[in-house]
Amino acid sequence: MNTADVVFNIQRFSLHDGPGIRTTVFLKGCSMRCFWCHNPEGQHPEPELRYFPERCIACGQCVLSCPNHAHEMHDGTHAFLRENCELSGLCVETCFSRALQMEGRAMTVAQVMDEVLSDKAFYESSGGGVTLSGGEPALSKDFAREILEACKVHRLHTAIETCGEVPWASLEALLPFTDLIMMDIKHLDESKHQRATGQPNDRILSNARRLASSGKTIIVRTPIVPSVNDTEEEIIQIATFVRELITLRTSAHQNGNGEIRYELLAFHKLAAGKYPSLGLEYKAHDIEPPTKEKMTSLLNAARRCGIEASLR
């Protein structure tokens, strides 16, 4: 319970990360760099300083507190010099207008469980539980496994959301304590996948096949991002792969096991505001979310492949 890693959010009453009322624990650090990422604060594995200039009241306390000269005041206006910041966090402690915030903090398994167990009664009454998300939770293998194991001691339903781009051993270590796996497959074409996410997809597809053979309930998800994967052809390729996973599952487990489903998610731009606060550039400005009609036609294309699919 003393294992620690960096958590950037614990969201209670989380309703879209598995069945029932859940708590989603967001672990920091991801192996991919999808340019539209909805949780860019989860990419970097270490804590990061976020700066919201619109909240700054120019009190100047950060300038006084920072040993590395990362803050300056010019004519009553505050400037943050990110390149000087060494994450001492001292400025955050003096910034009560919350213009400076530390994203992510090291937490022990015990601390996470303390928060998670607050809502145990709600999990029990709703068939909910705990979801590990990120970032990529399997990158924090030991931490993630210990949280899931502790959840199982309390008989909680568990789920992970994974991008799949991790060594198989990392995923495999979580399986004994995981009831539901939600896994992204963003593209079947390796070079397009590489361009969109910064990583190839061979290990992801291989991990997906191994997961299919494991018998766990799997929801394969594709975020529909115009210019990346919003053609029927591209979705049919992924849906066909999902059908292959189902076949694999059936041959590995004749008596049936957890189901494998497919979900399409629409890209949205709600995360655009997060990027500047992290000193990152948002590269999806010019992309518009797919229309309802588009999502429905892609869903129908997926269903024509003979698999159970839905929009989320």
Partner: peptide, 25 residues
């Protein structure tokens, strides 16, 4: 509550569970 909640059976049941659990507490 979040206006983003859908009218799905699943979301309705989650709110039902929230209500019941508050009263049980």
């Amino acid at each position: 509550l979040d206006p983003g909640l859908s009218k799905s059976d699943e979301d309705i049941e989650k709110v039902v569970a929230l209500i019941r659990t508050h009263f049980e507490m």
